[in-house]
Simulated assay, not measured.
Amino acid sequence: MKRILLACSSGMSTSLLVSKMKEIAKLRNLKVEIWAVGNEKVDTDMEKADVLFIGPQMRFLKKKLDKKADKLGIHIEVIDSIAYGRVDGEAVLNRALELIH
């Protein structure tokens, strides 16, 4: 099972994106766990993830999170702002799967 974590300021704006990603994963019969958290939980939840996407509004935290991600051996990336704005769950899911493989 692949584990994909999305994080934003409060976890609310990425929740809709998570729902879209789950819909696509279900249609493709993918075994994935996808969830969203606010920035106060990202540090602990990233320990359970294979990949971490952070909302564009949190890009300033990427450098700090990179250090922990390197230690954990997980990928971290800022969500593409166009995919984020369009709530394009398929694009974000595809990118997550690319990073995991």
Rank of each mutant, 00 (worst) to 15 (best):
M1A: 13
K2G: 05
K2E: 13
R3D: 09
I4W: 01
L5K: 02
L5E: 00
L5V: 00
A7M: 10
A7W: 02
C8S: 10
C8W: 01
S9M: 13
G11C: 12
M12G: 04
M12F: 11
S13Q: 10
L16I: 15
L16T: 13
L17M: 08
V18F: 07
M21R: 14
K22F: 00
K22A: 14
K22V: 15
E23C: 06
E23R: 14
I24V: 15
I24R: 14
K26F: 07
L27W: 07
L27A: 14
R28W: 05
N29W: 01
K31E: 15
V32D: 08
E33D: 15
W35I: 00
W35F: 05
V37T: 13
K41Y: 09
K41C: 07
D43N: 14
T44M: 12
D45R: 15
M46E: 09
M46L: 15
K48R: 14
K48C: 03
K48F: 04
A49M: 05
A49L: 07
V51I: 12
L52R: 11
L52D: 00
I54W: 00
G55T: 10
G55L: 06
G55D: 04
P56D: 11
P56Q: 09
Q57F: 04
M58V: 10
M58W: 00
R59G: 11
R59D: 11
F60Y: 14
L61C: 10
K63P: 03
D66Y: 04
K68S: 06
A69R: 10
D70Q: 09
K71N: 11
L72H: 04
G73K: 00
G73M: 03
I74S: 02
I76E: 00
I76H: 03
I76Q: 07
E77L: 07
E77P: 02
V78E: 13
I82D: 08
A83Y: 08
A83D: 14
V87T: 13
G89H: 08
E90H: 04
L93V: 11
L93K: 04
N94D: 15
L97C: 10
L97H: 03
E98C: 04
L99T: 08
